[in-house]
């Protein structure tokens, strides 16, 4: 019974999962496949941003800075001879640790103040990456970063990551892991306390939530996932530069998040896939598509402030209301 109920409730997600697993059979074009891989990576980064911005209500604009820290961390540690599987968690932890140190002063400020001070930190990261030539290679960046170290599985044997398909399954696994952790987190008491801070910080404090600790924790976890995405990015791309930490990237994720739907788990993923794919379809419009995109952003934020997921939610509510009314009408007729 439990299995049937599980299937009935979650069939949509299972279908999506099967589709995602079969995707390499459907997409044969290398370029398109690359877009899908980047979509998975940016989904992880955007999900991290969603935790601090969407669920906790603090608009951090340092996200690409932490993505960059993760990327440079993996690049430098792997150049230093560490395995990818050691370098990646280490770099994500470094990003989280720096996030803790930066969160201590910046999270004391609120609203736009917090947004601007984190934006300043993000800009500092990219300036330092461009000028600390001995460590980061300056504006030329670091090239020739190795692919993820092959892993040994019990039955299949050694799995390398030279092929795009293998890389895709790698990022998909990390995306599913991120989604799982985020799902557990936002549905826990801790997640509820984050949302309480977002909705009314003073009230949350008065019912005994340590709001500052909550904000710090959310910021640290968000930056851990930014660093994680950055680390995978560095290894898969093989080359990074200060633009890996640029503010433009933060703005991109912000747009993915807001258009997809903040404070939902599906929203960031939808945004991170739909927008880049749409941009590809509009390739013929060249530079003009950015103008259209900017205009679209303004229209969406004015008329659909909760993004795609908000619009879907409204639609579902309307359909449900319609059925309820129909049922109600039938009941009244029978009675």
């Amino acid at each position: 019974m439990a299995v049937i109920r599980f299937l009935r409730d979650k069939w949509f997600y299972l279908l999506l999962l099967v589709l995602a697993l079969c995707l390499p059979l459907l997409i044969t074009n290398r370029y398109h496949f690359q877009i899908v891989i980047m979509g998975c990576l940016f989904s992880i980064a955007t999900l991290g941003m969603n935790l601090i911005l969407g669920y906790t209500g603090q608009a951090s604009l340092a996200h690409a800075g932490f993505f960059g820290i993760g990327a440079y961390g993996v690049a430098l540690l792997m150049k230093g001879g560490l395995s990818f599987w050691v370098a990646l968690p280490l770099s994500a932890l470094i990003a989280a640790g720096i996030g803790f140190l930066i969160g201590l002063p910046t999270l004391r400020s609120r609203g736009s103040y917090f947004a601007i001070s984190t934006m300043c930190f993000g800009v500092i990261v990219s300036i330092v990456a461009g000028n600390w030539i001995d460590l980061t290679g300056g504006y030329n960046g670091i090239v020739g970063i190795a692919l993820p170290t092959p892993i040994h599985l019990p039955l299949i044997g050694s799995v390398g990551f030279q092929t795009q398909v293998a890389q895709y399954y790698l990022v998909l696994a990390f995306l599913l892991l991120t989604l799982f952790i985020m799902h557990r987190l936002v549905h826990s008491l801790l997640g509820l306390s984050f949302m309480a801070i977002r909705n009314n910080e003073a009230l949350a404090g008065s019912v005994g939530i340590n709001t500052f600790a909550g904000k710090i924790l959310s910021f640290v976890v968000a930056n851990f996932f930014a660093g994680l995405a950055g680390g995978i990015y560095a290894s898969l791309m093989g080359a990074i530069s200060p633009s890996t930490a640029s503010l433009d990237l933060t703005f991109n994720w912000l747009i993915f998040l807001l258009l997809g739907g903040a404070a939902t788990l599906a929203g960031p993923v939808i945004g991170a896939f739909v927008i880049p794919v749409t941009m590809e379809y509009l390739q013929s419009l060249a530079e003009y598509r950015l103008i259209i995109f900017g205009a679209l952003l303004i229209v969406v934020i004015i008329y659909f402030p909760r993004g795609v997921m908000g619009a879907v939610g409204n639609l579902r509510q309307k359909v449900r209301d319609f059925y309820d009314r129909k049922k109600g009408a039938k009941g009244a007729a029978a009675g």
Binding site: L53, A59, G111, S112, A115, F251, L254, I255, L258, E287, Y288, L290, I291, F293, G294, A295, L296, L297, I298, I301, I302, P305
Partner: peptide, 24 residues
């Protein structure tokens, strides 16, 4: 009358339009 972050996103849209228009 909406939260600050909404005006902020709107501003990012305006920024993109202005900068790209000048480039184009």
């Amino acid at each position: 009358d909406r939260p600050h972050i909404n005006s902020f996103i709107s501003a990012v849209g305006a920024m993109i339009i202005l900068e790209t228009s000048v480039i184009v």
